[in-house]
């Protein structure tokens, strides 16, 4: 049954294909493949002129679990984590077993790393706060992100907003993390359990920040993990102001995303204050010059008007 994982029914799924749901009879026209994960493949589809993301898989049970997560996220929908769920259905291909699919909002965005390369790292602080805010709301709702990683983070435009696009790893607080990626997993680094709790996400969040500045992820070695991660972090100039916060997240010192949010926004305020200090003397000169100009103008004006 499950043993035959190599006979994939994906040969049918080509651009132009019309997918009609078995239960709700909605019609989707397949445009192109967006990506492939452990559980299924995501396609860009069109439904009544609207672009949507459709995930299809033969692993019915895993798909149902993902839908359950999306549904519960829907209930606590004042955060921007995860796409919204539009439809859940089955599809019967010309041959073979029935496939499950679900349809989500299509989040069109740019990978975090390329966005920062194009628009400058000033945005980093903004996104950190946005993401921590979302994480906090998710945790408040009783869930943990689990598989938080760079590949799952997109920046949507106008105004730039960070979004997280894969809910596959989302786990109820207190349970075992469902899905993870080694680099972002504190269990892999020997720095904590795989129990779903806020600090698990914050570790992954810290690794996202560090991973952002390395072309490829690094592995554990002979060195003590904490020392290795600290060294890698210290090498990144842009992260220096946040170093203490990030290490606190790595070592599991934060109880909630809110605490980390506070620390990061504090750092950002200090950074702004510093910038203001260094530019305030210039501002003073400019202001003086402006006043002189105005005064001169009035003086000249008074000469012409008798």
């Amino acid at each position: 049954m499950m043993g035959k994982t190599w006979s994939k029914p994906e040969q049918w799924l080509r651009p132009g294909l019309k997918i009609v749901g078995k239960w709700h009879q909605n019609e989707y026209v397949l445009k192109r493949k967006l990506g492939q994960g452990a559980i299924g493949t995501v396609y860009l589809c069109e439904m009544n002129g609207q672009l949507v993301a459709l995930k299809m898989s033969e692993k019915n049970t895993s798909m149902t679990m993902e839908v359950n997560v999306l549904k519960s996220l829907e209930k606590a929908r004042d955060h921007c984590l995860g796409p919204s769920l539009l439809d859940v259905d089955d599809w019967q291909p010309p041959h073979g077993p029935v496939l499950s699919f679900y349809v989500m909002e299509y989040i069109q965005g740019e990978p975090l790393r390329t966005f920062l390369q194009r628009n400058g790292t000033d945005w980093l602080g903004v996104f950190m706060l946005q993401l921590l805010d979302d994480l906090d709301k998710l945790h408040e709702a009783g869930w943990v992100c689990g598989d938080l990683k760079l590949e799952n983070l997109l920046v949507t435009n106008t105004p730039p907003r960070i979004r997280w696009i894969d809910v596959g790893g989302t786990t109820k607080i207190g349970r075992a993390i469902k899905e993870y990626t080694e680099f972002y997993d504190r269990g892999y680094w020997g720095m904590g359990s795989r129990k779903a709790e806020p600090s698990y996400d914050l570790f992954a969040f810290a690794m996202v920040c560090i991973g952002l500045f390395y072309a490829s992820t690094f592995e554990r070695g002979k060195q003590q993990p904490e020392v290795l991660i600290r060294r890698r972090l210290h090498r990144v100039q842009t992260l220096r102001p946040f170093e203490a916060c990030i290490m606190k997240a790595i070592t599991g010192k934060y109880r909630s995303a809110k605490q980390m949010h506070q620390d990061i926004s504090h750092v950002l305020q200090q950074m702004k204050a510093k910038k203001r200090d260094s530019s305030s003397s210039d501002a003073f000169l400019m202001e003086g010059a402006g006043m002189l100009l105005l005064a001169g103008g009035y003086y000249l004006l008074s000469l012409f008007i008798p």
Binding site: R175, A176, I177, G187, S193, R194, A196
Partner: peptide, 8 residues
Amino acid sequence: SISLNARI
């Protein structure tokens, strides 16, 4: 065992 021991 790390993964399974995170279960209840």
